[in-house]
Amino acid sequence: MKAWVVSLGCGILAGVIYAAITVHSPAPPVVALLGLFGMLVGEQLIPIGRRLLSGQLTLTWFRHECVPKISGTPPPSRPNDGREE
Rank of each mutant, 00 (worst) to 15 (best):
L33F: 13
C10P: 00
W61P: 00
Q44T: 14
R83L: 13
T73C: 09
L33S: 13
R78P: 01
F37W: 14
N80R: 12
T60Q: 15
L59R: 09
D81I: 13
C66E: 09
E85V: 10
A14P: 00
S54V: 05
E84C: 03
L52D: 09
A32L: 14
S54A: 15
N80M: 11
P26H: 04
L13N: 03
I17Y: 01
H64I: 08
G38P: 01
K69T: 04
H24S: 12
A20I: 03
F37G: 05
V23L: 13
F37T: 14
V31D: 10
L8R: 11
S7P: 01
W61F: 01
P76C: 06
W4H: 12
H64M: 12
L52Q: 10
L40E: 11
S54N: 12
P74H: 02
T22R: 06
L53G: 03
P47M: 07
S71Y: 02
A3N: 07
E65R: 11
L8K: 08
V41G: 04
C66M: 14
T58C: 03
R51Q: 14
P29Q: 08
L53R: 15
L40S: 12
G9N: 02
A19T: 04
L34G: 09
V30K: 05
L36E: 04
V31Q: 11
T60P: 01
C66Y: 01
C10D: 04
G55K: 03
R78E: 13
G42H: 04
A32G: 02
V16E: 05
R50V: 09
